[in-house]
Computed example of a mutant assay.
Amino acid sequence: MKLIMIVMGLCLAVSAAQAQTSTPAPVIETYKTVGDQALKAHVFGAADKAPAPRAAVLLFHGGGWTEGEAEWTYGRATMLAAMGLVAIPIQYRLTRKDVSPLDALADACDAFAWTRANAKRLGVDPKRVAAYGVSAGGQLSAAAGLGACPGKARGPDLMLLWSPALDVAEDGWFRKIMAGKDPAKVSPLALADQQGPPTAIVQGEADTLTPLKSAEAFCAKRRAAGGVCEINRYPGLGHLLTRNTSNQESNFDIDPQASRDGFAKLQAFLTARGYVRP
């Protein structure tokens, strides 16, 4: 699990470097301080003099809850900002001896609260704050959107999930890093029958790490609860839309056409719900 996420980071870092060649650098702000650690929000596209408040998207990287950094999502953030959104990659605490995914979830929830509290300054519409979550970041996004935030704090208003970890209640790795705490309380699949925001998922049908069946079960529960949930499926592709399905943990070969199409599907989802201009 660790190795796959490290490699994923390298892949996304290349994408980010390419995107940054023509995109202004983000404004980096502290949204929360825990002990001596200042957690950062990397803000792309904020504008004090925008004609009207714009929708925002908070981006949460993958990494198996133990690896990663906000910069891993810079590539997508620059693309979202180019669409007219305020895009904000979020740093969250990684699992260590005294830190669990529950702490990362609390950070994600606080990032949404910080964005809304600073909405006027950032030029953001506080009623249109979405989440973009990759793999483990998908679990954080979905759990926050389905009522798992501490104190039932408000999570995202819309969710974009890329190869998300949705069924973690019985996952051996997740149970291990939860260190005895109940994983079902933050498992998106277990929470899917709650009221929650519209959701779009990009999913490889041959994904062995975050399987299609979990996304299908998640969306079935969301629809049964009256929610909106769509899955954009990609046959023959694995985790993060890799073509190398025989090794989805250490040797990615992401299908570029499928990746472009998946992002286009998310853009259409945003447009249909008024987050992006047609």
Rank of each mutant, 00 (worst) to 15 (best):
R233C: 05
A217I: 01
Y234L: 01
C229L: 09
K213S: 08
P235N: 10
R222L: 06
P235R: 01
A225G: 11
R243D: 14
T245P: 15
S214L: 00
S259W: 14
D253W: 05
V228S: 07
D261A: 07
E230L: 04
I254H: 04
A220Y: 03
H239Y: 12
I254P: 07
E230Y: 06
G238E: 04
L237A: 03
Y234F: 15
E249H: 05
R222F: 09
L212G: 10
K221Y: 06
D255L: 04
I254W: 00
D261G: 00
T245L: 05
D261E: 10
T210R: 00
T210Q: 00
S250M: 05
G227Y: 08
L237W: 12
T245W: 12
N232R: 03
I254Q: 09
V228H: 03
I254R: 08
R233H: 05
N251S: 08
S246R: 13
R223Q: 13
S250G: 15
R222H: 07
R260F: 12
P235E: 09
N232T: 08
T208Q: 14
G227E: 08
Q257K: 09
G238K: 09
G226W: 12
S214K: 00
L212C: 04
P235T: 05
A217W: 01
Y234T: 08
F218V: 03
R223L: 10
G227D: 11
R223F: 00
C229N: 10
R243C: 05
C229P: 15
N251K: 11
P235Y: 00
N244D: 14
A225L: 04
E249R: 03
F218K: 03
P211N: 09
D261M: 00
G226M: 02
C219R: 08
A217N: 10
F218C: 06
R223A: 13
L212R: 02
L209F: 00
F252A: 13
